Simulated scan of single mutants.
Amino acid sequence: MKRVVNVAEAKAKLSELLEAALRGEEVVIAKRGKPVATLSPIEPAKTRKLGLIDMEIPDSFFEPLPEEELEAWEGR
């Protein structure tokens, strides 16, 4: 279902509109009757558990080190 709201209503009901978007409802914000933006949910960030701490760790953390840096760690 598509819901079109004007800017003034969007300002007044932003929390409600965000909840609607999270439920999968299409929310369009219009200015003077013309659509200008759409609210939609974003993908949640991937998290990995590191020991007992639940935190965001970028995938790049698990990539191999560049050869130059690896040599420095190994004392070469």
Rank of each mutant, 00 (worst) to 15 (best):
E74A: 11
A10E: 01
L22E: 12
P64L: 10
I53G: 05
S40C: 03
S60F: 12
G51N: 05
R23K: 09
P66E: 15
E74N: 09
P44Q: 14
A45Q: 14
D54E: 14
E43W: 11
E56D: 11
V5C: 06
A8L: 06
R76E: 11
V5Q: 01
A37R: 05
E9N: 03
E69G: 01
R32P: 00
K46E: 15
G33S: 08
V5R: 04
R23T: 06
A12V: 00
K34T: 14
V36T: 09
K13F: 01
M55H: 12
F61V: 02
L14A: 12
E74L: 14
A20E: 10
I42H: 13
A8S: 08
E67H: 11
T47A: 14
A21Y: 03
E9F: 08
E25G: 00
V4N: 00
K13Q: 14
D59I: 05
E25K: 05
F61P: 06
K11P: 03
L65W: 08
R48T: 11
P35G: 04
E19C: 01
P44I: 14
E43R: 12
E26A: 09
L70E: 13
I53L: 14
V36N: 07
D59N: 10
T38I: 09
E9D: 08
R3N: 09
P44D: 12
R32Q: 13
R3L: 14
P64R: 04
S15D: 15
I57Y: 10
A8F: 08
S60Y: 08
K34V: 15
T47K: 15
E71M: 04
L39C: 04
L22A: 10
L65T: 00
E26W: 01
L17Q: 01
A30N: 00
R23D: 09
N6R: 02
E16S: 06
D59A: 11
K13N: 14
E16N: 00
G75I: 03
L70R: 08
A12T: 00
N6W: 08
I42Q: 14
A20P: 00
A12I: 01
